[in-house]
């Protein structure tokens, strides 16, 4: 589903963010991406959503080479990728309903379909009763769940999350992770970047570990990985 082939990314000024990364996440697979801050987790996710382009190597989604996607096609690629951010990235001036409806409005869905899908997504994250609230009336965990509802509302085949539990306590973090498991169980490929190793250890999923831009481990366990501190 997501395949990296010898991908390197260097930023201007010679900072080497990623070096010769190769991995393949199968359709319907759920995986964690871990490493220190600055190890290149965010850069890796940005390469998938084409917020950055690799300096060398190729990124494939569903067999399509992303280097062949031109500027005008980027929005259509992003519609296939649900993205969840540490700081939620909700629109403060819009209601929860409108925030979640955004991807559907952009794709031009009709009002009826929008309402049905948004209600389904909000129901899934347990916030249906707060559809008319504004983001700043919700707690951090609830805001994160709104972000997740927005990411899954158009049922994308890929879900990317960058530190989705960064600001949440362990109990809430686990709740959020359970949500990801639910989406994964219906066939969505999920890639979660996090440095919460305790959480990863409990969940038993494939873990990709990055250290200074290199993939140092690709396997089930992360806690014993070289150079990764818990």
């Amino acid at each position: 589903m997501i395949r990296f082939e010898q991908v390197s990314k260097s930023y201007s000024g010679g900072v080497q963010a990623l070096q010769k990364i190769s991995f393949h996440i199968q359709p319907g697979e759920m995986a964690f991406l871990t490493g220190h801050s600055g190890a290149g987790k965010s850069t890796l996710l940005k390469l998938i959503s084409i917020m950055e382009r690799p300096s060398a190597g190729h990124v494939f989604i569903n067999g399509h080479d992303l280097s062949k996607v031109n500027r005008k096609q980027i929005p259509f690629v992003r519609r296939d990728i649900g993205m969840i951010f540490q700081n939620h990235r909700l629109l403060r001036d819009n209601t929860i309903f409108d925030n979640v409806a955004l991807p559907l409005v952009i794709e031009g869905y009709g009002l009826k379909a929008i309402r049905k899908r948004v209600e389904t997504a909000l129901d899934k994250v347990g916030l249906l009763d707060k559809a008319r609230y504004y983001p700043n009336m919700l707690s951090g965990g609830e805001q994160q769940r709104v972000g997740i509802a927005r990411a899954v509302v158009n049922t994308p085949p890929i879900l990317l999350a960058d530190e989705p539990t960064g600001n949440l306590d362990p109990k809430l973090s686990l709740e959020i992770m359970r949500l990801f498991e639910d989406f994964n169980s219906v066939g969505t490929s999920v890639l979660i970047a996090t440095h919460d190793l305790g959480l990863i250890a409990r969940m038993k999923y494939r873990t990709l570990t990055l250290t200074r831009g290199r993939m140092v481990q690709d396997g089930l366990e992360a806690s014993g990985a070289n150079g990764v501190e818990s």
């Binding site: 005008k72 992003r78 519609r79 993205m83 990235r89 629109l91 001036d93 955004l102 952009i106």
Partner: peptide, 16 residues
């Protein structure tokens, strides 16, 4: 700016 970034992230075309 922030709103436009979010719109771009969820796949809005420049035209939209």
């Amino acid at each position: 700016k922030e709103e436009i970034e979010v719109l771009k992230l969820v796949g809005a075309t420049d035209g939209f």
